[in-house]
Amino acid sequence: MLETSLYFIQQLLNGLTIGSTYALIAIGYTMVYGIIGMINFAHGEIYMIGMYISFVAISGLTMLGVEYLPLILFITLLISVFISSTYGWAVERVAYRPVRGGNRLIALISAIGMSIFLQNYVRIAQGSRDIAMPSLIQGGWSMGPLDGFQATLSYMQVVIFIVTFITMTGLTFFIAKSRMGRACRAVSEDMKMAGLLGINTNRIISLTFVIGAALAAVAGLLLGLYYGVTNPYIGFIAGLKAFTAAVLGGIGSIPGAMLGGLVLGVTESMTSAYFSSEYKDVVSFGLLILILLFRPTGLLGKPEVEKI
């Protein structure tokens, strides 16, 4: 009895860990969709780039002789967020803005093209093989009998929870309280009207891409540390998962993306634990299909009101 509940707790912790990083990536999808109504399929690649930059920055800092771990992580976070945001900004500027206002299919194809471009660009620049990094944050708290199954909450998981929580809280406040957040909400409700009231809508759109990319970079650093390995192809599947999370929560809704990420993460880890880990993707994408069939607006999404 004790063992089964400890096992369950362990799976829940693992699920929430993965889920919170899905949520971080999903916000990028949901914000962009909320404002310009397109799916940024290159977003997963931004996450992958964020992870690569983290790896490079950590090894660079270690080589320079920086030994204090929190400092390494903090500087890495800044570098990764900054460079990834620049990528996010540039992707919008180069691949989406010129085709905005045209048929939506064009933007979609442009996004897929951008995704393929970024993936191959990293593959050529960094090589297509896995690169690995020793785990920097080790240890954790264990619960349960010493001779039986122990549920472990690793320090790495704690870091992921805390960083995700701070980031989400910051974003929520930014959107709800700040002047730019207010403009973001206005643009996502009625872009044309916002423009007619003097808001530079292009700048707000750039801002959402930058925020989305920054959050993806945070997720890239966290998951990079968690898994300790990366390759140029991880962006695709992570992007799909985060997209699923965004749709699950209700695309366009930021709290929805947070919730959707957690639900998806827990669903996956429970599937792996009680059924088979090979079926976890089947279950997550099956869930996506079910949601699209029976509740297309997602868990927290509002029914689409056709804009005139």
Binding site: R179, R182, A183, R185, A186, E189, D190, M193, L197, I199
Partner: peptide, 12 residues
């Protein structure tokens, strides 16, 4: 901006 408050409409 119907999902924003009255005063937010004026601030934005």
């Amino acid at each position: 901006f119907s999902q924003m408050t009255v005063i937010e409409n004026l601030l934005v």
